[in-house]
Nucleic acid binder design. Sequence first.
DNA 1: GCTCCGATTATCT
DNA 2: GATAATCGGAGCG
Length: 200
Amino acid sequence: MPPSTDLRDLLAGAVLAVAPRLLGSVLRHGEVACRITEVEAYDGARDPGSHANRGETARNAVMFGPPGHLYVYFTYGMHYCCNVVCGPPGSPSAVLVRAGEVVDGLDLARARRTPARSDRDLARGPANLCQALGIEAKQNGHDLTRPPLTMTPPELLADDVRTGPRVGLRLAADRPWRFWLPKEPSVSTYRPAVSRRRGP
DNA sequence: GCTCCGATTATCT
DNA sequence: GATAATCGGAGCG
């Protein structure tokens, strides 16, 4: 008998409370499953770093919908990243899933991630994680209570959660809204967004 | 481990 | 037209 950690109950809260509680949860798509080790919170329309901060558009519409759905976006011309939409209703908040440990379907994950030099790299970084799990544009808006793409909350809350700045943002780069589990090899090293100089 | 840099295109100004 | 919630390879330590 599992504890009362129903996914919908968990995701109903405010994103800054929800994000660290998702560490240790399992995101499964078919035969591949990842235990989540690193996430970031995106706090509604007030968050300058969020895709939702300029209002609803075709791309970010899922963030404005009900909790428990997956917001998948395409970036840098070649990568997908996925977020879990959370509450409260009407606030376009979401948790970016940045990294995880592949705990099932290793063979398929390895086949999808041929550049990975070791298993810890299979789902290290948000775009790599999506690739390992086979998450693409057609999974945008998916309800995570419906197999084959599901999220299962952890049985125990992580008791040692680290926090720091979010990765790759120029806006609101000071907010420590990245959460990760210590001593997990799948957690990315921090890369600040640098304003790349062009020309002399 | 680190830093530099090119790939490649949807999205928004 | 510029930017982007990124990645991997090259070169260095």
